[in-house]
Design a protein around this nucleic acid. Structure first.
Lengths: 225, 225
DNA sequence: ACCTGAACACCGTTCAAGT
DNA sequence: ACCTGAACACCGTTCAAGT
């Protein structure tokens, strides 16, 4: 007998991914267990193995569920501002979902939601004048950068500081630790402690995006940059 | 009474990190448990909690242990070739250690081994003519890219394909899946299936490095590029 | 100062059995 | 075709107790 409060929809793989997403949002990746996802869909843990080979495969479904609702930026302005906006949106999207980068980062296998975006990106790159080979490489490069960046951003700055201190305190502590290094052995780290810990993550992300976009522009014939 | 086959060294936190590294190499991150690391140093699991607050803190020690032996490239050639070499060495170093990127990726807190390298990088960047603020950002950008890239590289291409198929087969299967998409909905993905799955990871990594270096060069006054 | 045994509350996964 | 209970072999962590 199924559970009693309402009639469950037929439990597709997609529904499983969305259930996993709700558990992720509530309990984080460390708290995401087969038992909890099963409970979320009103079933026992063992039943999940009918729909999914193992937990890794469930994480594949979660990977795609995370990307639902990600939207391409409007097609206004030159390719540069469009792809700047693409990167910032992608970062925002991951950042807004708990532990999203940890789930997504090691998972190349793109689900339907990511494929849609990749298709759109390729179209814009080709229009902008990139060769097919370059366009393919560019989508990979941008994806890698955004995922890698958010992965660090969503992780506690140091495991031991995860418990208790705020981000600001942790960063300040990091700066102090840098300044406390022996200056004769670490002249640059001590001198640049402020530069290293000062800029917030928005600024750091934007810096990387602009450098990469500059680098991509160099691939185009001068008149299309 | 300690174990009997040899007298253990006094079990420092550094020794703990190295023991964790040996377990990681042998059993992978999924197989790295407190019990196994304890056994590796000839002690029971509960004893580890004398030296370490929890598993996360042990992973911090492992994080630094992974970076032992990483070497800076020789100071020959211009800044560009030096940092190209830096990126390629960093990638190689992580790639050579099982699951290294998964451990390192979310862990900003740099251990002594990473600090040494960062100090060296900052020196070279300042000499090359980067401002202090830019130099600080550049080390972060390069680190993020390399870690993010290797993270994907060390992950099975798709969880469900991890078991069984070789990398080559998995990539070919991915290409076939792209080509099988409806071309009216996905004209670019189907047309560029070969470009997307063709280039090997060496080429992809090098592509990203060169784009980023191009972007960094634009920060310098023209005569120093 | 450091280690232990025992216990607690969990895990992922398998499998025979049910409907 | 789909779900279950029970079991197996693990986990991380705590804590009183030992030396």
């Amino acid at each position: 007998m199924p559970n009693d409060d309402d009639t469950q929809p037929p439990l597709t793989r997609e529904a499983l991914g969305l259930a996993a997403l709700r558990v992720l949002e509530r309990d984080g990746l460390a708290g995401l267990s087969m038992r909890k996802v099963a409970a979320e869909v009103g079933v026992k843990a063992a039943s999940l193995y009918w729909h999914v080979r193992n937990k890794e495969e469930l994480l594949d479904l979660l990977n795609d569920a995370i990307m639902t609702g990600a939207e391409a930026p409007p097609r206004v302005g030159d390719w540069r501002s469009q792809f700047r906006e693409y990167c910032h949106r992608h970062r925002r999207h991951l950042l807004d979902r708990r532990d999203a980068a940890k789930v997504v980062a090691g998972r190349l296998a793109p689900g339907p939601n990511l494929l849609r975006l990749q298709e759109d990106q390729l179209g814009r790159l080709r229009e902008a004048g990139f060769t097919d080979a370059d366009a393919a490489m560019v989508t990979y490069l941008l994806g890698t950068y955004v995922q890698g960046f958010v992965l660090q951003e969503q992780s506690p700055i140091s495991a031991s500081e995860a418990m208790g201190a705020t981000r600001r305190e942790a960063v300040d502590a990091a700066a102090d630790r840098l300044r406390a290094l022996p200056p004769e052995e670490f002249p640059h780290l001590t001198a640049l402690a402020g530069d290293l810990t000062g800029p917030d993550l928005d600024a750091r992300f934007a810096f990387g995006v602009e450098r990469i976009l500059d680098g991509l522009a160099a691939l185009l014939p001068a008149e299309r940059r």
